[in-house]
């Protein structure tokens, strides 16, 4: 297309708000984090000095490997399970008739609950002594006390994240399923494919872009967005069993006032997340069919 604007000023003015937002909310803080990662200073920002890789050394010490393990397990479990549940629900809902909008609203609804509120609700449900969920588990013979049991706290945080993330995934899977032309599925029917074959050979491959998008969103949500849920449920405990990398970063930076350490941790997390996404896109791009 030929240039539409005669002046150079107008296009610049039009993109300025975006540039300002990106610079203020992304580039400037990222640069600051990068800078702090190589500096040590006290909590009040006094006496900062260049410290080389010392912060990275400290970051990789201690609980970091455990946090990497917790994060990896948490990400894998929440992503796979929430995708499985939401895809199953979306497929079932698509095959319903008049009640479809009702089901749809019902399953999307949980995503409208803010993370912290959902977490508070679950906290009440699974409060070890009085929560109805906890009582049900006790009745099943599970000695339920997530405040002491790392496994149980981890399971609770996972379940809650899956509960919320499934609703988000459901929206996209529903939309993805609707965008697949009925005729293609009917053609497969005419070709002699049963419901299961139709799903795995035709519907699922055509959902490829949606699956990629949802996987990436879920992984990012698990890596960066798990913060509110963990903060309300377990504060990273007990014994670091729910301390994900981003929660560790929050605690070191904001609770413990160690900005340099948090900066180093955020750089490591950034590199880790970036590498993960590159791998995801590489793997998927070979398989995803974009219509």
């Amino acid at each position: 297309m030929p240039p539409v604007f005669k002046h150079r000023l107008l296009p610049a003015a039009l993109i300025l708000p975006e540039v300002v937002v990106v610079v203020i909310f992304f580039i400037w803080p990222s640069g600051k984090a990068l800078l702090e990662a190589f500096r040590q200073s006290n909590a009040f920002g006094l006496g900062a000095r260049f410290s080389g890789l010392a912060n990275f050394g400290s970051a990789l010490h201690g609980g970091y490997l455990q946090a990497v393990e917790v994060t990896a397990t948490f990400t894998a479990i929440t992503t796979l399970v929430s995708m499985g549940i939401s895809l199953f629900l979306a497929v079932q809902v698509e095959s319903t008739g008049r009640l479809r909008p009702v089901y749809r609203t019902l399953f999307i609804w949980t995503y409208a609950v803010p993370g912290a509120i959902g977490a508070a609700l679950w906290l009440f449900l699974f409060e070890p002594k009085v929560g109805p969920g906890a009582r049900a588990l006790e009745a099943l013979g599970v000695h339920w006390n997530f405040a002491l049991s790392g496994t149980q706290a981890f399971a609770l945080v996972c379940a809650l994240t899956i509960w919320q993330q499934s609703a988000y995934n459901f929206v996209f899977f529903s939309a993805g399923l609707q965008s697949i032309p009925d005729a293609v599925v009917e053609a497969a029917t005419m070709d002699g494919a049963g419901p299961v074959t139709r799903f795995w050979k035709v519907v699922f491959p055509l959902l490829g872009p949606t699956v990629l998008f949802v996987t990436v969103s879920d992984v990012l949500a698990a890596l960066f967005g798990s913060f509110a849920v963990i903060d309300v449920i377990s504060q990273g405990g007990p014994g670091g069993s729910t301390t994900t990398l981003v929660y560790m970063l929050y605690r070191d930076g904001f609770q413990n006032g160690d900005v340099g350490l948090a900066g180093a941790e955020s750089m490591l997390l950034f590199v880790l997340a970036g590498a993960l996404l590159v791998v995801q896109f590489k793997v998927f791009n070979r398989r995803v069919h974009y219509r």
């Binding site: 002491l148 049991s149 790392g150 405990g237 007990p238 670091g240 413990n256």
Partner: peptide
């Protein structure tokens, strides 16, 4: 210094002992 952080570590240790881990 960082006593709050040291306390977190200690609380984790206590939790591990009390849960028999």
């Amino acid at each position: 210094g960082y006593l709050p952080e040291v306390r977190q570590v200690e609380a984790s240790a206590i939790a591990a002992v009390l849960s028999g881990k």
